[in-house]
């Protein structure tokens, strides 16, 4: 049985947890999957302008450069020290059996909204809450996301162009930011719609928490890390990551297969939604 090489491209602690739980799920199911993990915290706050600084794609490889903002988690560092540059093999220097799982594509509206430095903790120091009535129409928020995600989606497109299979994992929701709940839910809903629509057009599978785990606003309190007795809605906890890991393995087993003993890795399109 040939193994599929799965590269998990992570951006935050959630990715580390997903790595661990996915690994467990692989072992438990004895699945023919070899899991690789690259921690790259720079992607947490990928903004259109900063993409060029952190991610460079050349003709034969994608390079994730050492991020300026490093993960503070000792756990993450222990798991995989951050290197100066991480090379993601593309067709010319890799076997054709790689699947790239891009975790945490959804990124906070807040970081762009408030021109924050890319430091997660600063988010909680904002004083001025954003109100539903601040004056942004749904169209404007949608166009903002369309524009904002373009560089990240271009990277995914580049990966596909290089013949790579790409899967996007998203256990998280955008980081919470000081705003009225109605506005937060509106922004979150639009963001989900935009990103899922784009991925659908690119035929890239999107794996998030199962519908039964989320409420009408797309949240499940039990799946997120608690901060001051409130779910932070940004970081999936062990339950959330375990669920994602399990779903990822199930999905890979169901939809990816080798076309003959020496044939290439193929993907049965089964788009979400």
């Amino acid at each position: 049985m040939r193994e599929i090489n799965v590269a998990l491209l992570g951006s935050c602690l959630g990715s580390a947890l997903i790595y661990l739980y996915t690994k467990q799920a692989i072992r438990a199911k004895n699945a023919a999957i070899r899991l690789h993990y690259t921690y790259c915290n720079s992607l947490i706050f990928l903004m259109p302008a900063s993409v060029g600084q952190f991610v460079i794609y050349e003709s034969d490889r994608l390079i994730l450069k050492k991020p300026q903002v490093l993960g503070k988690s000792a756990f993450a560092r222990q798991l995989r020290p951050i290197k100066d540059e991480t090379f993601i093999p593309l067709p010319e220097d890799a076997n054709n059996d790689w699947i790239y799982c891009w975790n945490a594509l959804l990124q906070p509206f807040l970081s762009t909204m408030h021109k924050l430095p890319p430091n997660y903790h600063d988010i909680f120091q904002l004083n001025e809450p954003v109100k539903e009535t601040t004056g942004f129409s749904e169209n404007l928020i949608r166009d903002h996301f369309n524009y904002f995600y373009k560089p990240q989606l271009d990277i995914l497109k580049a990966m596909k162009k290089f013949g790579r299979h790409v899967v996007v994992l998203e256990p998280n929701r955008p980081n919470p930011f000081p705003c009225e709940a109605a506005f937060y839910h509106k922004v979150t809903r639009i963001e989900q719609e935009v990103i899922q629509n784009e991925l659908k057009q690119m035929d890239i599978p999107f794996i998030d928490l199962p519908q039964e785990m989320v409420d009408e606003n797309g949240f499940n309190k039990e799946a997120y890390r608690m901060v001051k007795d409130e779910p932070d809605y940004a970081h999936a906890n062990a339950l959330g990551c375990q669920t994602i890991g399990q779903r990822l393995i199930d999905f890979l087993e169901e939809h990816f297969y080798f076309d003959g003993e020496d044939g290439p890795l193929s993907y049965r399109s089964a788009m979400k939604g």
Partner: peptide, 16 residues
């Protein structure tokens, strides 16, 4: 008095 929100890309200012 109604400036573009800081997060909005410059390309979107005029259409809005």
């Amino acid at each position: 008095l109604e400036p573009a929100p800081s997060f909005l890309a410059k390309e979107l200012h005029k259409p809005y």
